[in-house]
């Protein structure tokens, strides 16, 4: 190995010719020549295999009677017992429905929001106002989930906070928004919009800045209004990005983030706030029911994966935009 590296100078020019002579030079030779690449990727790749692929095989505990003593491989098989059990849990479909509803609601509001913001920002000229809007709208992305939920709690609580102040100022009785199950989804979705719209808009702003200026010139000559330019130039040029992001979003529909929902939960809103990921955590780690919990997780991942492939396939058929 050292020979190839330190004496790389003289053999190099000749080696640049040899591959063309012997078209199928061995893989080993190509590897030896650039062995340092393999040195570089060794640790990260080891990480990927251990921390990404081993857990993938670890999901077999969903089919086993896992116990700590015998470990993953040693534990006896349970077949589909836990999957059957899953469908018998009385609240499971409720959690499934909550997951789906929050996701779809979130997508219905949260997906178009950054597009609208980007289109609006694209209309105004570069200046302090545009820069401030961009800077301020990106900022909430950097606030932690814990703090976001705290802000929600502080502002929505019936005791202190903006909304209750406003209610009192108007002579109305303050409402405990987070204690009302009916408000949970809306609070979740709109606080996400508040936090992520600016960040989400960056991709679209980038795509819009790449639009060929000739198109606008031509539209101007044709007497198109600003609004017509948005409809006929801006939106069509965003379609590829929109489709890709839509596929990715739909593919993650069931993997609703655990972090924020878990923090927003309280006994009063449990009915609408329990989703699959929080249930997996509670059953699995808090209840130490590993196999059952892994079965729920696997069920969820499979749905996600199938959705992703399905949506990608459909999109490929109709719009020729796809992930692969």
């Amino acid at each position: 190995m050292e020979v190839t590296s330190s004496k790389a100078v003289p053999p190099n020019p000749s080696e640049r010719i040899t591959p063309r002579k012997k078209a199928g030079t061995s893989a080993g030779r190509k590897i030896m020549k650039h062995w340092q690449f393999y040195l570089l990727v060794f640790l990260p790749l080891l990480y990927i295999i251990i921390f990404k692929y081993i857990p993938m095989f670890g999901v077999i505990i969903a089919f086993k009677e896992y116990n700590v003593v015998q470990g993953i491989l040693g534990s006896p098989w349970a077949g589909l017992k836990y999957f059957k059990q899953l469908f018998e849990v009385p609240f499971f479909w409720q959690y499934f429905k909550n997951t789906l509803e929050i996701s779809l609601y979130g997508m219905a509001i949260g997906f178009p929001a950054p597009i609208i913001l980007a289109l609006a920002l694209n209309e105004i000229r570069n200046g302090i106002f545009k820069k401030s809007v961009q800077m301020v709208t990106y900022a909430p992305y950097f606030i932690s989930t814990v703090v976001i939920v705290s802000i929600l709690i502080v502002n929505l609580s019936p005791n202190v906070g903006l909304l209750s102040n406003a209610f009192r100022a108007l002579g109305m009785e303050p409402v405990d928004f987070l204690g009302k199950a009916g408000f949970f989804k809306t609070i979740y979705v709109f606080s996400d919009v508040w936090q992520f719209t600016g960040y989400g808009a960056i991709i679209y702003i980038a795509a819009l800045s790449g639009v060929n200026p000739d198109l606008y010139e031509a539209a101007k000559v044709d007497g198109a209004s600003r609004f017509q330019k948005i409809i006929n130039i801006d939106i069509p040029s965003l379609i590829p990005v929109i489709v890709i992001l839509l596929i990715l979003n739909l593919g993650q529909m069931m993997s609703l983030g655990f972090e924020k929902i878990y923090l927003m939960q309280n006994p009063l809103n449990q009915n609408t706030s329990e989703v699959i990921s929080t249930y997996v955590y509670k059953v699995g780690l808090l209840g130490a029911n590993f196999s059952f919990s892994a079965a729920i997780g696997l069920f969820n991942s499979v749905i996600n994966f199938v959705l992703l492939i399905l949506v990608n396939f459909i999109s490929k058929k109709i719009s020729s935009n796809s992930l692969w």
Partner: peptide, 14 residues
């Protein structure tokens, strides 16, 4: 690995 992962429990056990 972006599209499929083992999930919470297998990760925790690892």
């Amino acid at each position: 690995t972006m599209f499929f992962d083992g999930g919470l429990i297998p990760n925790y056990l690892l």
